[in-house]
Design a protein around this nucleic acid. Structure first.
Lengths: 340, 340
DNA sequence: AGAGTCTTCCAAAGCGCTTTGGCCTTTTTG
DNA sequence: CAAAAAGGCCAAAGCGCTTTGGAAGACTCT
């Protein structure tokens, strides 16, 4: 059942039927009702391919997925996706993932824009002066950055959490508890979130005249194993920290294991605070010692990003508004006063 | 730059240019070369929307993503996606995720098929007599099932791993080591993979005249917490098992924690084998006691599914071939002879 | 009553590609 | 050497929708 048939059946022109269906004003209300009714009754659904060709609108949002044999998709992605999908569903939006060579995403961005494959895109895990952000900005497709980039001469729309504030608070708490030697086990420090977190820790330390030792900050891919290794290194050297801030719950698993392997205890010998993105399958309160966390649901962020993308597509949102969400500091058993 | 312009520029008809580009035979090789050359030089890319409208082909594969406030996307999904994306990238395929109400996916399947939004779909986490499989089969869109359904009067194409064999082997090993009371901490037993795994364990036990106790098998969502709870329950009751087979590494984290909380040890008091889907961020050899596993890379499965989908789209693969991959049994420190 | 204004609808022109049916040359064939 | 076949190309008809530029009729206004 296509427009032509439907129009014929109603003894109307395609024009009128199309307009009636799409809510244009220049059609009699009674006619509109007739059309709507017939459309529903016959289960008429406009062919999206045709509509796309005519309008350029796709009803899809895009994400360029970096891939490659040695590229691992972040497990956080799936949670973000839960939120995004949940919103998208209620608005009949689909998400198209365009896999790209991790080292050449530009080609793919250009392709999906040139081909009008999606109405908007989002970008995640941005770095300072991220080329993708600059690119989509010049390409002129609506977009939202999940996280923040920095150092552009233009503004853009983003949804981020207050990483600096979160880690500032976490460090401040540890300092208040008497800790003097903190360590930070961070994610990839080419990404903005990691930079902000480090800044937060440094700022808190500086306030008390302390510093983050050169060897007390590490930047690694956030795996359990890397959490373990980093912790071993930190605790086995002289000048070992008495408190650790850690950028992910997954790494925290490794931290806990390392501490145990060294026959030390949390929080007796070392206090631990980790960032919690809220995974349904791994919860900080269920660690052997309940973990203090800076908490922010990445899933909610996904829903929010979808919402904003939808708003931008429909023209409801404009401009370069960035929003920064506060992060909860949740204190549990893994922190205590500094030993000694 | 569109076909018309390109054709004009070459002083050829659109027909010829189109044919030259798409490899049709009825065009002079020299002409073809000229066309190809000009197309490349001017960066001509056929507009996919137009092509879709004309051919019905989209160059996209689809996945219906169950969503909802209380629906969690399986963390395995992201690894599967890595593999899928990796293959898709090299073949210029995009993946479209269509979020659907978890309780009504049929509507969405019908929509994406009716609208010709994708060339093929895949289905994951199937259950016996899965309605989605029956649906896409009748809808007539090419598809691959990742995993297996059962109990249809038709055949279909799937890629699965030998879950039954894997858990049969695991259980057999434990039995050989003298264990008599095994327990199985399984995933949702409405899904086929869980059923097969249980069957594998039961079969191994039966061979030695043993059985799987009523209370020694649990079926839960695969989270750390559920692994913990299940283990506590198993070990605190009378008739506690001396060996546990566990369906996921994430649950195994909980198992290990529970065993420790009870001041028991692995493998001294209880042996443990878990299934490992091969996550980059959590590896069985890095557990406090290196974990024995049944191992199968879900990522490779993703790549394979993509490959088969591409083959079906292009007509290279037909029929209802199902393939079952063997699973490696990797023995590490977490298994030992039965205590006592 | 004639001019201007809405209101309501339509015919037809795209959107950019593929594909059908056919036309002209050139080559092969009996 | 005429007839048949093959090679190489083209014009034009879709694919199903949106949108432009009217047009017919109803209504208001002077």
């Amino acid at each position: 059942m296509n427009l032509k048939q439907l129009a014929h059946m109603l003894a109307l022109s395609q024009t009128t039927v199309s307009r009636a269906l799409n809510g244009y004003p220049e059609v009699n209300e009674e006619t509109r009702r007739r059309v709507m009714d017939a459309a529903k009754r016959h289960g008429y659904r406009p062919n999206p391919s045709a509509r796309r060709l005519a309008t350029g609108k796709t009803g899809m949002i895009g994400y360029v997925l970096p891939t490659g044999a040695s590229v691992d998709i972040d497990p956080h992605f799936v949670e973000f996706l839960s939120g995004l999908g949940d919103y998208a569903r209620s608005h009949e939006l689909d998400l198209v993932l365009s896999p790209a060579d991790a080292d050449d995403q530009e080609t793919t961005y250009r392709r999906i824009v040139a081909n009008r494959q999606v109405d908007a895109v989002y970008i995640s895990s941005p770095r300072p002066a991220d080329r993708r952000v600059a690119l989509v900005n010049t390409l002129g497709i609506p977009f939202i950055v999940h996280g923040r980039s920095e150092g552009f001469d233009f503004d853009y729309a983003f949804t981020d959490i207050d990483n600096e504030g979160a880690f500032h608070e976490a460090a401040r708490l540890l300092i208040q508890l008497g800790h003097r030697r903190l360590a930070l086990i961070n994610g990839d420090d080419r990404e903005t979130f990691a930079i902000h977190r480090e800044r937060g820790v440094r700022r808190a330390l500086a306030t008390s005249g302390l510093t983050l030792g050169e060897r007390h900050v590490c930047s690694v891919v956030m795996t359990e194993e890397n959490g373990y290794r980093a912790t071993r290194r930190l605790l086995e050297e002289g000048d070992a920290p008495t408190a650790i801030a850690c950028s992910s719950l997954i790494m925290a698993l490794g931290v806990v294991r390392a501490v145990r392997d060294l026959s030390l205890s949390i929080p007796g010998d070392v206090s631990l605070i980790a960032h919690d993105d809220v995974f349904p399958w791994l919860r900080p309160e269920n660690f052997s010692v309940p973990l203090s966390t800076t908490r922010s649901s990445i899933r909610l962020a996904g829903a929010r990003v979808a919402e904003r993308l939808a708003a931008r597509i429909s023209g409801l949102e404009e401009g370069a508004r960035g929003e920064v969400w506060p992060v909860d500091l949740v204190v549990r058993g893994s922190v205590a006063g500094a030993p000694g």
